[in-house]
Design a protein around this nucleic acid. Structure first.
Lengths: 158, 158
DNA sequence: TTATCTGCAAAGGCTTTGCAGGTCG
DNA sequence: CGACCTGCAAAGCCTTTGCAGATAA
């Protein structure tokens, strides 16, 4: 297991589901809330699409010029380790960070520009794996990624 | 669009569905079949789990000591560009290569050791996205990744 | 106060690329 | 023969880390 730079233990691994406000939840956990961490949390919450670390840094930097990339990366990694943020990795291998861990959902991605959005598909609850298809695994969930082309990309040539 | 090192045009983008043998299909496409490329294709076909580029290189190197990592990476990228191999990117961001493009299927992954297997879920065909959930995208498909823990990892502590 | 966090810059893992030489068809 | 492919080594991206100074509680 990774050390997550030593700041967290795996005991802190269950997201509190009583409140939709990430910053509040972090405070309630007793997370040391520096200006940098608050800004990262705010940026994540303020978006309806899912951002890369670079995106988060860019937006955070506007609000707090002194923030560093390392801190953004470290903070995101810790939020994921705590279970307060979910990571989605598209085929390009660049991680996106999804702050919405309170409501079950899946994703829709533009295969052209990599835009990633939340969706709530129909029929999703009927998806199961037969025992013969489980190969002895303990299966605890699944993610669906819908693939398509977004409105702005439809017009473009490449 | 990427250039795929210039060897392929986007016109060569549809996988031939008439034969399960990758090497045969490549030959039929008129792909210049060097020893290196043949070995990469063979390694992919011979596995029932999906390998990383590093795995492919290791196995290929056993069969053909002179093969280089660069060639493995380039060959894999080209196979993907041709549509003869599919890429799956787990949360760790390390790409896995799936030679089975002829039969629709989804994946089951061990979240501990990252082992990736093919599966054919029940109810999968009922999954759809309502128009209100499409946000103007043209949606052409979806991937499902089942998450779990494999038999060998169940016994371990970490 | 002091354990924890931050910024910087360097390092690390995976993948791509420039180029000179070799090879398939 | 000639277009295409390979290996090597260097470079590129994204992400992590060591460390000294700063800071929340």
């Amino acid at each position: 297991m990774h050390t997550y730079r030593g700041y967290y233990t795996s005991a802190m691994n269950l997201a509190d589901t009583s409140d939709g406000d990430l910053t509040q939840r972090l405070k309630r956990r007793g997370w040391r809330l520096s200006a940098q961490r608050r800004v990262v949390a705010e940026v994540l919450q303020g978006e309806h699409v899912h951002l890369t670390a670079e995106d988060v840094f860019a937006r955070a930097h506007v609000r707090l010029a002194e923030i560093s990339q390392a801190t953004v990366y470290n903070t995101l990694r810790e939020l994921v380790a705590m279970g307060e943020v979910r990571v989605v990795t598209p085929p390009d291998g660049v991680k996106r960070y999804d702050p919405n861990v309170l409501v079950d959902h899946h994703h829709l991605m533009c295969m052209r520009c990599q835009l990633l959005k939340d969706v709530h598909p129909d029929g999703e609850s009927g998806v199961t794996l037969a025992n013969s298809e489980r190969f002895g695994f303990d299966v605890w969930g699944f993610d669906i990624i819908f693939k398509g082309v977004c409105p702005s990309c439809k017009g473009r040539s490449t």
